Amino acid sequence: MKIIFSNYKLGAGVATDLVNTSPVVQTTRGELLTDRAALARFLAEHDVRPDALADGRQPDDADLEDVRSLRGEIRAILEADAEEHVVEAASALVRRGGIGPSLYRDAEDRWQWYVATSPDTSVADELAVLMGTGLLGALRTLSHDRFRRCASPVCEGMFVDTSKAGRRRYCMPEVCGNRLNVASHRARRLESARRRPDSRGTGDTDSG
């Protein structure tokens, strides 16, 4: 696998999404990497093609166990308070199977800096190199402030905000953001109902 230095968003995005497959985050759905097929789907959805899975080989149980273990390491990096710890830990991920940096031509025949993975590197270690490079790139380009906890009070998710504006608040905006908006809307409706006068009829009746 060749990982381009300038495309840190890919590695940071995979790191974010991997961390949030955990049952610690997915309190309703539970573990998302339930089996080898789920891991294969995760890789396909992120367009990650490890060399270890070349020629149609599918992830095995060892790959699944190793990626789940790596997930915990990535979360610890995202939670780190000190930038130095992020750099040290992310660099250690890159060293697991990374070679380089070296110059390679990209799809448009331009020279780019890449980190390549060494032969016979495992699926988990290839992911470690990809995510480690992405986290280092995000820290260097965007700052440590972009490593964040989800703003939802009922979510334990983490994320790296690689957006241009840097205003992302939720680990899964389509889930956590909507959930919080629905909760706020319901709270406003309830408060409005409480303040509304009783319309069931309050007039006195003349009993004669």
Rank of each mutant, 00 (worst) to 15 (best):
L139C: 05
D106M: 03
R194E: 09
S199D: 11
E84V: 13
D47M: 14
R195Q: 05
Q58E: 15
S91H: 15
E88W: 08
E126G: 02
T202I: 10
Y114E: 04
R41Y: 05
T121V: 10
T16F: 08
V182P: 08
S199P: 11
A76T: 15
A76N: 12
D106V: 09
V67E: 00
S152H: 11
P119W: 07
L53P: 08
P101S: 01
E88V: 12
H46Q: 07
E79K: 14
S143R: 15
G97V: 00
Y114D: 03
G100K: 00
L135F: 00
D61F: 02
S118Y: 05
A44H: 12
T205C: 05
A138Y: 03
A82I: 08
D106S: 04
D66Q: 11
D161E: 10
A54P: 01
A151P: 05
A193W: 08
R149M: 10
P153G: 13
P119N: 02
D51W: 03
A40W: 00
L10A: 04
G201M: 02
N178Y: 09
A89W: 09
D206T: 13
V87F: 05
D125P: 09
A82Y: 13
R68V: 11
E191F: 02
V123N: 02
Y170S: 13
L190V: 15
T141F: 09
A187N: 04
E45M: 04
L64P: 09
L127T: 09
F147A: 04
L127A: 10
A89M: 13
G72Y: 05
R186P: 03
S122V: 09
V175I: 10
G13A: 03
T27W: 12
T121S: 12
L93H: 04
V86L: 11
